[in-house]
Design a protein around this nucleic acid. Sequence first.
RNA 1: GGGAGCGUAGCUCAGCCUGGGAGAGCACCGCGCUGUGGACGCGGGGGUCGCGGGUUCAAGUCCCGUCGCUCCUCCCA
Length: 425
Amino acid sequence: MKVESVRGMRDILPEEVPLWQKLEEEIRSLFALYGYKEIRPPLVELAELFSRSVGEATDIVHKEMYVFPDKKGQMLALRPEATASVVRAYIEHGLYAKGDLAKLYYIGPMFRYEKPQKGRQRQFHQYGVEALGSLDPALDAEVIDLAWHLMERVGLSREGLFLRLNSIGCREDRPAYRAALRAHFSGRKEELCPDCQRRLQENPLRILDCKEPQCQGAIAAAPKSLDFLCEKCRAHFEELLAILEDLGLSYELDPRLVRGIDYYTRTVFELCSRELGAQDALLGGGRYDDLVELLGGPPTPGVGFAGGMERLVLVLSQHGLSQDEASELDLFVIPIGEEGKRRAVGILAQLRRRGISADLDYMGRSLRKAMSVAARRARYALLLGPDELSQNSATLKNLVTGVSSTAPLAEFLSNPRSFLGSTGT
RNA sequence: GGGAGCGUAGCUCAGCCUGGGAGAGCACCGCGCUGUGGACGCGGGGGUCGCGGGUUCAAGUCCCGUCGCUCCUCCCA
């Protein structure tokens, strides 16, 4: 039986990797520029961490999380997102005790048991930042600025993107708003889809997120969270908008934006592409001022976002900003005959120890064919045949100019770089 | 979770409607050119036709099931 990869889990092949590496480098360097430090939490956590933070009733936990018992029967989960893990680590290692804002970032695989399609895999990759310890709206703005900046940095234009923004208030505002939503939707319960009828009890906010046509009428007429903000939340949001305008960052207020995770408070946002179709959210985030306390730490506000690598790769390859040519070798060694082959192995080892990137034809190809491969992969070819070896020399061919020359082997090996032109790495 | 389309060589695909030789282009290998690349010509290797079952004298082709991918919906990154 042929073994294949698991549904929703895919290989990132060598030809795609350069683009991934480039993006990862851009992300790391930009996060560092804003003062964020990398943290690498484990991929496996207690399942309870996510059910308590992300929310038992959310789709992510309720139907998408990989949960399994370990050999002691402890319920574990493959992380469906990383904010909960980062906050857990923040509490567990007392990072709050340093008395400063903790600015952390991560990048790595996440797991959600969903129906795979373009831009959505079961193992996917997210990068994200978390800033823990300040309630300053300027920090919300910094995080949003970072999100925009990152998109510019990887080469996406502002015109192809838009920011959806909303405030859903703090935990004091929530009961009144939730009651208002419940009252509103209860009156129109018959219009709602089955999912929303369930959400009416569990979490009426999520109804706003529903895309079912039959629900749209009731949703459009629903009360808006912005009308239920307390004085502090209102001031916070207004300050944020003012800063965004100062920074020249555009946004679209979206009273329906609530996001699918329970821990959010106040600011929520998504940065979306106009070019991606159904899966258009490139990154999403917001404030989570109660999460640290909820997970057993001291009351500590936080704000952050997470973005999907696969979607970034998708948009960028649509723009043709994809990978560079495969990096070329300095040298390709072509042996002729048994003696040449035997000598080639040793010469190759010496060259590599001198920092020359080099490879050898292991395929037993004809000289003609080997030369053709060499031309594709390397800047120079080194020929080792009976003629050369009888004089302890080697033929070096510049594959760009086509010029060949012969040099004593000892001389070549003592300072190979002087024979290989200036562009050597 | 619901709906639709598609799985044939490493890749892109034709063949399926109207059942009977498994094919093309690219890639790969060899030769022309006995030790020198990109061109050209000739030749060659490579396929459980996704998998399982059914109909039939005969199935890549028709039918059913299943797995996978893609798209829409849903959800989200």
